[in-house]
Simulated assay, not measured.
Amino acid sequence: MLASVLVEPGQVEVRRRPVPQPARDDVLVEVSVVGVCGSDAHYFRHGRIGEYVVTAPIVLGHEAAGRIVAVGDDVPKSRIGERVSIEPQRPDPASSETRRGLYNLCPHLQFYATPPVDGALCEFVTIQSAFAHAVPDGMSDDSAALLEPLSVGIAAVRKAGIEAGAHVLIAGAGPVGLVTAAVARAFGATRIVMSDPDPARRARATEFGATETIDPTTDSVRELAVDSFIDASGAPRAVVDGMFAVRPAGTVVLVGMGADEVSLPLSLLQNRELVLQGVFRYANTWPLAIELATSGAVDLDSMVTARFGLEEVAKALEADRIPGNIKAVVDVRRGGQS
């Protein structure tokens, strides 16, 4: 098969690799579309994210969809031909975290495109059968792939405890921030404030559920008085300003990955009895993600603003620098022209 391989930071090559063989409880998926995540671009440019370091050639990409073309011995053959969205993680079923339903926190978790595990920017991948989620015929391949970032938004909104009538501030109008706004709206939030310094991104935010937008470089964030704050930017200033915007007993949820260490106003955290939550990927989100996408509550197709072939992955990984771009996808089935 053909695979786009990150050879070293800044260099990707299309190489031939053996088609992987499914284990007993695996399925083999012919990949259709892969979304490009900020983490992919970070590995491409820097070769590492925190403790995860690229030390050998690796295939990037973890937002993926495709069709099952073969199954392991323990999987019903009736699944062959099924269109699926891939939940790109393989936890250890024996770990205490997995047994408690927190499989995203499994210390032995293997996650697509996290060194040394290969991702989905290739023609075929294997995944445990339970993590290949069947999607309706009416769902596009783009949407099926983007159920992955939608799942991050679902995890964040659940952590924030958003319910009907809630007021929420979301920092960062990138793909995760936008889907988080859409999920917050679906959960019943009536005031959704989106903060981003980019006017083009702020304009898009209203399409995804934001009831108002602000420029954090000129507007007062700290005076907003919201029930919860979700940071999808990773910017230290945004994190601190957002904490000040939360009412007493509110919730702060950190999704964006930025600096490893940030100085936080601990006296504010204590005096207001704020709840500070981290989000690490997701667990048990795909069924709801499928419902939100198929019901029209979240329009994932409208997020796609750039499309590339497998031979153009280097361009796709730089697409976040294109003004106005929201989400680039790679159509693995084609190459050559953007």
Rank of each mutant, 00 (worst) to 15 (best):
A283H: 11
S267N: 14
Y282P: 06
L264E: 10
L254F: 01
M257R: 07
G234K: 10
F244L: 02
Y282L: 11
N271Q: 15
V252R: 07
V253R: 06
L254W: 00
A232Y: 02
P287C: 08
A259W: 05
D219T: 03
V279M: 12
T217E: 10
E273K: 05
A232P: 00
V279L: 08
L288C: 01
L264I: 07
Q277V: 10
S263M: 15
P236V: 11
S220C: 15
L264G: 00
R247T: 14
A225D: 14
T218I: 10
T218S: 14
M243C: 00
T218N: 11
D231H: 02
S263T: 15
L264R: 08
I230Q: 00
L254A: 04
E291P: 01
V221D: 04
E223R: 09
V279R: 06
M257V: 15
D241L: 05
A289F: 03
N271K: 11
D231I: 09
G250H: 04
R281C: 05
L264N: 02
P248A: 13
S220D: 15
L274R: 15
D241S: 05
A289T: 02
L276S: 05
G256D: 02
L264F: 10
Q270V: 11
G234L: 13
E261K: 14
A289M: 06
G256S: 03
A259Y: 06
S220N: 15
Q270K: 09
R272P: 00
D241H: 05
V279A: 08
D227C: 11
V255F: 00
R272T: 05
T285I: 00
G256V: 05
V255K: 03
F280R: 15
D241R: 09
